[in-house]
Amino acid sequence: MDRSVIHLDFERIWPSVPYILEGVQVTLAYTGVSLALGFICGILLTLCKISHIQPLKWFAGIYTSIFRGTPLLLQLVLIYHATPQLTGYDISAWQAGILTFTLNSAAYLSEHMRAGINALDKGQMEAALSLGIPYPLIMKDIIVPQAIRNILPSLVNEAIDLLKESALISTIGGADILRRANIVASEKYLYFEPLLIAGALYYILVMILTSAAHLLEKKLKTS
């Protein structure tokens, strides 16, 4: 009889740990770039949603509904495989990943932002209007900064979701944490150890984000 059921052999994958660690950069790059671009697209989408121009409202509504109503993995493989077929452009895994995550997070963020703007007292808008401030400036300097402060917690949640969902790019060949762990696993015929390391890395990253968010919230509360 075996002395134990679980054999953990970290020694054998020890040389591959730096390789997996490099995936942190890749994962963070996907998350950071998509979040930043998604944030900008999200603002534009929100402006469409709260505008009085019907076609813009419809566009934003349908957009959001589609991106929230279908699996992210499907969106990813669709963009990755359909882009070359439709346009002849050979899209890289990196580009497809960024594009998908940007479009997807824009949909989610715009919903949070819309709620954040609706939660603002309408007196803010009225006070700004009564001072003769033009609409674009009201949005930029009065409404959006306050709305962002309102939605900061959901912004961090979106970042955390994005960080975890970024693991999906490993399915189209993006060399992120999960993909690298899988490569090491199949090289060494050891699955548990590299995946455990990958899981720990994701967890640590999420914890760092969470505590940074707490700090930020505290700071915003005092100012």
Binding site: G123, S130, L131, I133, P134, L137, D141, Q146
Partner: peptide
């Protein structure tokens, strides 16, 4: 036409002085 509201409607993310000078500066 300036306006003063029942609920003040100051901009909470600006200091008192910023509240006062924002509109003349930008508009």
């Amino acid at each position: 036409l300036g306006m003063v509201f029942q609920q003040f409607n100051l901009f909470p993310h600006m200091t008192t002085l910023q509240n006062v000078i924002y509109a003349p500066m930008k508009v």
